[in-house]
């Protein structure tokens, strides 16, 4: 069971209140019509699936219902950092 700090509520809550939305910082192509099938397919379906430090998007779905980002180790499950959408702190090891 993960114990997650919601930066909007400012407190630790249990995992069941949250929902993981997958890899963070996936930018939607600015001009979808101009994408090749390969580019669009890549945006839609291909993921880093990192073993180690993983940046991911979470939502506090039964709490404040706001999104935020997390850096979590996918082997130890330890949460290393929680940060707001729109920011991207540097850390050693985390893939982009």
């Amino acid at each position: 069971m993960l114990h997650i700090f919601c930066p909007h509520c400012g407190e630790y809550r249990e995992e069941e209140e949250f929902r993981c939305k997958g890899q963070a910082h996936i930018a939607r192509p600015l001009d979808p019509e101009a994408c090749s099938d390969e580019e669009w397919g890549h945006f839609m379906f291909f993921r880093q699936n990192t073993r180690g430090q993983h940046r991911e998007l979470w939502v506090h779905s039964t709490g404040c219902r706001k999104h935020f980002n997390v850096i979590r180790n996918t082997v130890t499950y330890e949460i290393e950092k929680v940060y707001l959408v729109g920011t991207k702190p540097e850390t050693e090891g985390a893939a982009s």
């Binding site: 995992e15 699936n49 996918t74």
Partner: peptide, 11 residues
């Protein structure tokens, strides 16, 4: 969530 630890959450 993505996980490689061969264990999941109790819930």
């Amino acid at each position: 969530w993505v996980g490689y630890g061969q264990r999941g959450s109790y819930s």
